[in-house]
């Protein structure tokens, strides 16, 4: 109950004046403006150094959070894409002269099945093109017995019975096999799970470093404010009053510096697609796209970047309160 009462009684409107830079504070509505000069000075050398440190750490934390989120999102999309497709393979050596007719028959058969949304037979040229990255573009490809492929898109909300289709194809068409990408899916899932875990580990490390640096920098800044704490204590201020003054100051500092870092990180993500397109293309660019998708963050990704600001500001606030308690303990 005491905790809830403390939250209710907290001068939340006063926090706004702590967050907004002092030069802009005069434009705030009256109820959000500080009543008089701030007891904790808004600018000091230690405070300025802390602002720079927090801005840099927020930038790194936001960048890491956004990047991990982006990789996870594109990996999930990748797995989802793979899972919603199956491939039918026709052996080119079976019924070779009538392979086109067989392609049509198999396609018609597949189109009639429940849970299949699209059947796309690939031409012999399409199949050959798939081998071009490995064998190159030359006339000899036409001579090779390249399997013919039919790409089948399935309805993920109402999926077909893959085993049933597989058996029906085997019974009705000789040399026709179905690949549900199961093995590849399993490999991709393992890969994405590893990427996600790796990303989370990196994120945890960056956050741990951010917390350590911010706590340390806030403590240093608090040390320079020791005299203020002592004077307030001697003129009869309660621990609660002193804590509030410092919390307001350090919350404002944390939000301002955190926002600078988060906005810088968000700008980096906004610029990423353009930076990626500046490359000369080729396999590197394709791999990059495969890894991070189009290089864009969605709304949740940007919100994650700005969530970092709350964490950073909260850390500053809590550390300052602990700093006040530590100084006052010497007098109790």
């Amino acid at each position: 109950m005491t905790f809830l009462t403390n939250i209710r009684d907290y001068p939340w409107s006063g926090l706004v004046s702590g967050i907004v830079p002092s030069r802009l504070a005069s434009y705030l509505p009256a109820r959000f403006q500080a009543k008089s000069t701030q007891i904790v000075p808004s600018a000091s050398i230690a405070g300025n150094a802390l602002t720079v440190v927090i801005a840099i750490m927020s930038f790194l934390a936001s960048l890491t959070a956004g990047a991990v989120y982006m990789v996870n999102q594109s990996a999930s999309a990748w797995v989802s894409d793979i899972a919603s497709e199956i491939t039918i393979e026709l052996d080119p050596l079976v019924d070779a002269p009538d392979i086109e007719k067989k392609m049509t028959l198999v396609s018609l058969f597949l189109a009639k099945q429940k849970g299949i949304t699209e059947v796309k037979p690939l031409t012999a040229e399409d199949s050959a093109k798939l081998l071009e990255p490995w064998l190159g573009h030359n006339a000899a490809l036409a001579e090779l017995p390249i399997p013919r492929l039919i790409a089948v898109e399935i309805d993920r909300s109402n999926p077909p019975d893959i085993e049933l289709i597989k058996n029906a194809l085997t019974q009705n068409f000789e040399g026709v096999t179905l690949d549900d990408h199961g093995r590849w899916q399993a490999e991709i899932k393992t890969l994405t799970r590893s990427a996600a875990l790796g990303g989370l580990a990196v994120l945890a490390l960056v956050f741990a470093a951010t917390i350590a640096v911010i706590v340390s920098a806030t403590r240093s800044a608090m040390a320079s404010n020791r005299e203020i704490i002592e004077v307030l204590h001697f003129v009869g201020a309660t621990e609660r009053f002193i804590s509030r003054e410092f919390e307001r100051h350090f919350l404002g500092l944390g939000v301002r510096a955190g926002l600078v870092g988060a906005i810088a990180a968000a700008s980096a993500f906004l610029a990423m697609p353009y930076v990626m397109n500046l490359g000369s293309g080729g396999i590197t660019e394709a791999e990059m796209h495969r890894l991070v998708g189009p290089g864009r963050l969605d709304l949740w990704g940007y919100l994650l970047c700005f969530f970092v600001v709350f964490v950073v500001a909260g850390l500053c606030m809590i550390t300052s309160r602990l700093g006040v308690i530590r100084v006052l303990k010497a007098y109790e």
Binding site: T37, I39, P41, E227, I228, E230, V231, H233, F234, V235, G236, A237, T238, E239, R240, L328, E332
Partner: peptide, 25 residues
């Protein structure tokens, strides 16, 4: 601690080194 702060308000103290806050008038 709160009780002592209450009592401290009934006492005024003048320090040898003044202890004025430099950023306040």
């Amino acid at each position: 601690q709160g009780g002592r702060a209450e009592l401290r308000r009934r006492i005024g103290i003048v320090f040898q080194d003044f202890r004025l806050l430099d950023h306040l008038t």
